[in-house]
């Protein structure tokens, strides 16, 4: 049957792709070193959901805030930084310039470029004065 042959082909193709993508892990390639959140033990949504869908939540929140002035905290970019902040040796939060920045850990690994921080500050609270060097 035509359809079942397609299914079988699809299975082998998927298996092959899976095998190829697992190779680096099996070979001991680096995995992202995801920094621990500084407080709380539960993200605003379930962790697996956040890993997969955080961009959707941020995109939705972005349009709600910009266009309709809705400023709920839960899914805001600002709220991410209340927990997901990485500090340097001096105890200062690192900016997105550092590869240790929470967002960069995974985004560098996955080679997915984000342009949030071309406009948004990448540290909690932002820069309050004329621009202390970080």
């Amino acid at each position: 049957m035509k359809e079942s042959r397609h299914t079988r082909q699809g299975f082998w193709a998927a298996a092959l792709i899976f095998a190829l993508f697992s190779l680096p892990v099996m070979a001991g390639a680096p995995v992202p070193d995801i920094p621990e959140a500084v407080k709380g033990d539960q993200c605003v949504e379930e962790t697996g959901f956040m890993r997969k869908n955080h961009m959707e939540l941020l995109l939705h929140q972005r349009d709600e805030t910009m266009h309709r002035g809705i400023r709920t905290k839960k899914h805001s970019l600002k709220n991410c930084f209340t927990c997901h902040v990485v500090k340097d040796a001096g105890g200062q939060p690192v900016t997105v310039k550092s590869p240790k920045h929470f967002c960069r850990e995974c985004h560098d690994y996955a080679a997915v470029q984000i342009d949030c921080f071309q406009c948004h500050t990448s540290v909690p609270g932002g820069h309050k004065t004329t621009g202390e060097k970080l």
């Binding site: 071309q118 406009c119 500050t121 609270g125 820069h127």
Partner: peptide, 12 residues
């Protein structure tokens, strides 16, 4: 390029 934005005033 800018890097010293306020938290509530994004600009780039």
């Amino acid at each position: 390029d800018l890097e010293h934005q306020r938290e509530y005033a994004p600009r780039g």
